Simulated scan of single mutants.
Amino acid sequence: MSSALLAKPQMRGLLASRLKKHLVVLSILSLGIIVGFKFGVSEPRKRAYAEFYKNYDFAKEFEAMREAGIFQSAPPKGS
Rank of each mutant, 00 (worst) to 15 (best):
G78Y: 08
S42D: 12
V41K: 12
G36Y: 01
A4F: 04
L29I: 07
F71L: 14
A16I: 02
K77H: 07
S73N: 14
K21E: 14
S27P: 02
F62W: 15
I70F: 11
E63L: 09
L14A: 12
I33G: 02
L19T: 04
S30N: 04
E67P: 01
K77N: 08
D57L: 00
L5D: 12
F58P: 01
G13S: 13
V25I: 08
A59T: 05
D57T: 01
G13Q: 09
L14M: 10
S17H: 07
M65H: 06
V24Q: 10
F37A: 08
S73H: 11
D57E: 01
R66G: 02
D57N: 15
S3I: 04
P44H: 12
P76W: 03
I33W: 04
A50L: 01
E51T: 11
L31C: 09
Q72P: 03
K8H: 13
R66A: 03
K38D: 00
L19N: 07
V25S: 10
N55H: 10
A59H: 11
S30L: 10
G78T: 06
L19S: 14
Y56N: 06
K46C: 04
K60Q: 11
R45V: 09
I33R: 04
V35H: 09
M1H: 11
F39T: 14
L5K: 07
A4S: 12
V41P: 00
A74Q: 05
A74S: 05
K77V: 07
G36C: 03
K20D: 07
G32A: 04
E67W: 01
K21W: 08
I33T: 10
F71Q: 01
A48C: 12
G78K: 08
S73K: 12
S30R: 03
A48D: 09
L31T: 13
G32L: 06
M1L: 13
A7M: 06
P76T: 02
I33A: 15
L26S: 12
